[in-house]
Computed example of a mutant assay.
Amino acid sequence: MVRAAALLGFVGATAPVTGCGLFDGEPDPPPPPDPLAPLITGALDLAARYDAAVAAHPELADRLRPVAEAHRAHAAELARVTGTALPSATPTASAPATDPGAGTATATLGGLREAEQQGREAASRAAAEAPAGRAALVGSIAAARATHLEVLR
């Protein structure tokens, strides 16, 4: 009798667990996106903007291509750290709505400076909020974006 009561007590203790969705076949909800995911998209967007600027102003190629490659390297490392797959195609720049290479070279550089500044600020915020294991990487990306601003002067 004691053994039956113990068994019933065990079954009773597990019964609420089966009603919570853990064992009833419902799929787990997808995990939330990684907080660094927007930095991946931002880096790829910046690389695309630089590519558009070089296409519109080939005379800026030696100056801008290394920065575009740095952004692609940042996106690749962020994707590695977060376990995120990079998109197969480079996304188009999300802002401004006009072609980032349109206009004069001076105007193009001004638009790239603005985009870099926004990217640096986003990376700085992300570094401040990132766990210690990621803060150094994100902080170095913020620092790189600050140096990109100097290239665009």
Rank of each mutant, 00 (worst) to 15 (best):
P33C: 04
P35H: 10
P38F: 02
L39C: 10
I40M: 07
T41F: 05
A43E: 14
A43N: 10
L44Q: 11
L46Y: 00
R49F: 00
Y50P: 03
Y50S: 01
Y50K: 01
A52C: 10
A52E: 13
V54T: 06
A55R: 15
A56W: 02
A56N: 12
H57T: 09
L60A: 15
L60F: 03
L64F: 03
L64Y: 02
R65M: 11
R65N: 05
P66K: 10
P66M: 08
P66C: 06
P66H: 04
V67K: 05
A68D: 06
E69R: 15
E69W: 13
A70I: 00
H71M: 06
H71T: 00
R72P: 09
A73Q: 14
H74Y: 02
H74E: 11
A76P: 01
A76D: 13
A79S: 13
T82E: 05
T82R: 05
T84L: 15
A85W: 08
P87S: 07
S88A: 15
A89I: 04
P91C: 09
P91M: 08
T92A: 14
A93W: 11
P96I: 11
P96W: 02
D99W: 04
P100S: 02
G103D: 04
T104D: 08
A105W: 03
T106Q: 12
A107L: 13
A107E: 14
L109R: 03
L109S: 03
G111K: 02
L112F: 04
R113G: 01
E114G: 14
E114M: 11
E116C: 04
Q117T: 13
Q118K: 15
Q118E: 14
G119A: 15
R120S: 00
E121H: 13
A126C: 09
A128D: 15
A128E: 15
A130L: 08
A130C: 09
P131C: 06
G133P: 12
A135P: 07
V138P: 03
G139E: 04
S140G: 04
A142G: 09
R145H: 13
R145P: 00
A146R: 08
A146H: 11
T147F: 06
T147L: 13
L149A: 08
L149H: 03
V151E: 10
L152E: 02
L152T: 03
R153T: 10
